[in-house]
Design a protein around this nucleic acid. Structure first.
Ligand SMILES: [Zn+2]
Ligand SMILES: [Zn+2]
Length: 729
DNA sequence: TTTAGCCGTCGG
DNA sequence: CGACGGCTAAAA
């Protein structure tokens, strides 16, 4: 009889093991349903872990003696009912252990058992003495400017930092004289000066109205608008309406989109403090923002992929900017898709989910075309702006010197002569992608990967896949020839060539090497100034900072992307081209886009650049996907595996293939080597599963996942299931 | 995934 | 005989 009494805690631990672990409650604590969702500290093997109580149950008679949990760490559940349900759904959908999913959803300090942080924020206001003394402060000084600002109302430290990065200096000067004082508050601080909203165009107005009409219910909406059509103003107006109803808003942006400039824009336009969650914050700051949302103190949170796990107890609206962006899919561990999880949360929460993009993903477009998503179109650039003129440069008959043809150099020179700015785009960093022997055809390959090494500078060969680094050999290792030549041009080579040709204008290279830190990108843009200048770089330049003087976009080459085997490569390339091209031109200055290619007749380029643009491309690509049985017309799961020995790898995938036999009508494709069969010394292979029915695939995965865990052959193999993979690499 | 523990080999 | 490496089962 006592065996039937629910007396054990079923705990989700942060491990990749797909099961829960049973513990007795700590001494003096009764096992009650009220403990579900709270963190507990438990001994596990020889170490101590922090887990979350996932349920309360009767003890399993088959189990041996249970350990006692050390302590319950929370007074209430960390996740509310909605977040808890959404996380459980995510664990099932993307096939990941619940404890691992819970751990991913928590900011570091909470994951490690720290108490919820204090969310009170420091607010500075003028003292009475300060108010009196302000007019007497020396005019034109920073303390005077700060005092004037505070006279309009108290400000929190975020607002002061937005005003000036060096806000502490004048503040300290005022504080020393007793003119300002610090308070602690969890309330939003009113009185932050706000930029008035611009007048919206008719299409923007319609879009805002469409979103506002759906506040209070689940509604997926696609905001489909070209670069410069004013999507952000639509977000801001919708968020204001959401705030006015007393609800919270969550905004997801791609990693690269969360610039200080973008944050400032949200902060200045909205009547409440805007909290940010991004990789540049300390763990403590992330925990504070998360907790402030959980307590309802924060009303607007803007963040990157992992911000989708933020509690939204008073949710009103979720916005996903650049919804097509691949960075929303986590590429290791718990391989969730933030956009898709946001849609599920929106449905559970009963709030609209606004998906914005100039180049919507084919999945989202397909939903919009089928009427499942409301489709809001902003077809014109806001204001007077006109679309840029596109030149496709056939370089088959053109000599390329350092990757640049004569007509392109001439176009850049003309642009600079007008005092305008040029962006030269090339999606390969380094000096040259290949180092080739002119005499025997040998090229420098990585010893641990099936991939060529990239030449960096003049003397270094670098593998972009495993990080291997070595010196350029003095002569060809195969034929002793001295004729080793860099083949092709990366950003570094373009930079040098442009610097030599245009020595008098500022030139900035933007790629992973030059832009390590968070603020480096902003510094680069500042270094460019607002006169004539050149930016060279990779897709880091595709969005971000607004550059009004930029009128010429030169795409040095994207030919290597035209023939990729991956089913999503075309979509990616089209999105990238449209994004980069969209940077050319503004209201008064018409932009031009130059594309150098050896394949001017490639269907993708014809349709995209000289035909009907992105939507015409998308229609063709969707037809191809339908014919080939790829998403959105089928749902995929990729079983990836890697091992040091080929035999172990093959044996594992052969077993996995057998396990997937005839199940639920899901198509199992024969195991095959990965597109890069060897990487960092490890052999890689994969098996694809596909089904037109998402439910059938999910049913198979529910059976397959535990069986894979139980396989003997799994031992020497690292494997993972990737549900809805963004690429098959 | 991590790790304790078992067993077999090998050097001292 | 004890150290070490490789393999396996178990972690509640
Ligand atoms: Zn050679
Ligand atoms: Zn390598």
């Amino acid at each position: 009889m006592p065996d039937r009494v629910p007396s054990v805690l079923r705990v989700a631990l942060p491990l990749p093991l797909p099961r829960l672990f049973d513990y007795l409650p700590p001494r003096g604590v009764a096992a009650s349903a009220a403990l579900v969702g709270r963190r507990v500290r438990v001994g596990f093997g020889s170490k101590v872990l922090v887990g979350i109580v996932a349920g309360i149950d009767a003890p399993d008679p088959a189990a041996g003696t249970l350990r006692e949990a050390d302590a319950v760490l929370d007074a209430t559940a960390l996740f509310d009912a909605e977040l808890d349900a959404s996380l459980r759904w995510a664990a099932g959908y993307w096939q990941r252990a619940l404890g691992d999913v819970f751990a991913t959803a928590l900011p570091g300090p909470l994951r490690h058992g720290e108490p919820l942080p204090d969310t009170a924020r420091a607010v500075w206001r003028l003292t009475e003495a300060g108010a009196t003394a302000t007019p007497a402060l020396r005019a034109g000084t920073r303390p005077r400017a700060l005092a004037e600002r505070l006279r309009a109302g108290a400000q929190d430290e975020d607002a002061l930092a937005a005003w000036s990065p060096q806000w502490r200096t004048p503040l300290r000067s005022l504080a020393r004289r007793g003119l300002v004082e610090r308070l602690w508050t969890t309330q939003p601080v009113p009185g932050t000066p706000r930029t008035p909203p611009p007048v919206l165009g008719a299409a923007q107005r319609r879009a805002v109205d469409a979103v506002c009409a759906r506040l209070g219910e689940f509604a997926p909406l696609l905001l489909d608008g070209v670069t410069g059509s004013g999507k952000t103003e639509v977000y801001l107006a919708a968020i204001e309406a959401c705030l006015a109803q007393g609800r919270q808003a969550l905004v997801l942006v791609p990693e690269i989109g969360l610039t200080p400039q973008a944050l400032r824009r949200y902060g200045e336009r909205l009547p409440v403090p805007v909290h940010a969650l991004h990789s540049g914050l300390s763990e403590g700051e992330r925990a504070r923002a998360w907790t402030a949302m959980a307590r309802g103190e924060a009303r607007v949170l803007i963040g990157t992929r992992s911000a989708v796990f933020t509690p939204l107890p008073q949710a009103g609206l979720i916005v996903i900017d650049e919804e097509h962006d691949a960075s929303y899919k986590q590429q290791d561990g718990f391989r969730y898709h933030a956009r898709d999880l946001a849609l599920v949360r929106g449905k559970t929460l009963g709030v609209p989910v606004l998906l914005g993009s100039a180049t919507p993903s084919l999945e989202t477009l397909h939903h919009a075309m089928g009427g499942r998503y409301a489709w809001l179109r902003l077809s014109e650039r806001a204001g007077e702006a006109i679309a840029p003129q596109v030149h496709v440069l056939d370089v088959r008959a053109q000599p390329l010197v350092d990757g640049l043809s004569r007509p392109l150099r001439a176009a850049i020179a003309a642009c600079l002569a007008r005092g305008e700015q040029a962006l030269v785009f090339r999606n390969r960093r380094g000096f040259a992608p290949v180092l080739l022997c002119h005499d025997c055809g040998w090229h420098a390959d990585c010893e641990r990967c099936d991939s060529a090494m990239t030449l960096h500078g003049r003397h270094t060969l670098l593998c972009h896949h495993c990080g291997a680094r070595r010196r350029v050999p003095p002569a060809c290792p195969q034929c002793d020839s001295l004729g080793l030549v860099p083949q092709g041009a990366g950003t570094e080579r373009l930079e040098q060539a442009l610097a030599a040709e245009f020595p008098d204008v500022p030139l900035v290279r933007v790629d992973r090497e030059t832009t390590q830190h968070r603020d480096a990108l902003e510094k680069h843009f500042a270094a460019l100034g607002d006169g004539a200048g050149i930016l060279v770089g990779t897709q880091m330049l595709a969005k971000g900072h607004d550059l009004p003087r930029l009128t010429l976009v030169a795409i040095a080459s994207i030919d290597d992307g035209l023939f990729s085997a991956d089913f999503r490569a075309g979509e990616r390339l089209a999105q990238l081209l449209i994004q980069v091209a969209g940077r050319a031109g503004r209201a008064a200055l018409r932009g031009a886009v130059w594309l150098q290619t050896h394949h001017p007749d490639h269907p993708l380029l014809r349709t995209l650049l000289t035909g009907g643009g992105y939507h015409a491309f998308a229609a063709e690509a969707l037809a191809e996907r339908r014919a080939a049985g790829f998403p959105p017309f089928a749902h995929l799961c990729l079983l990836r595996a890697e091992a040091t020995g080929q035999a172990e790898l093959d044996a594992f995938l052969a077993e996995a293939f057998a396990l997937a036999e005839n199940a639920f009508g899901v198509t199992r494709h024969a195991p095959m080597p990965a597109p890069m069969p060897r990487r960092a010394g490890r052999l890689r292979a994969q098996m694809l599963l596909s089904s037109p029915q998402r439910g059938a695939l999910q049913a198979l995965l529910r059976e397959l996942f535990p069986r894979l865990h139980a396989l003997r052959e799994r031992k020497k193999v690292r494997w993972s299931l990737d549900v809805d993979p963004v690429d098959l690499y």
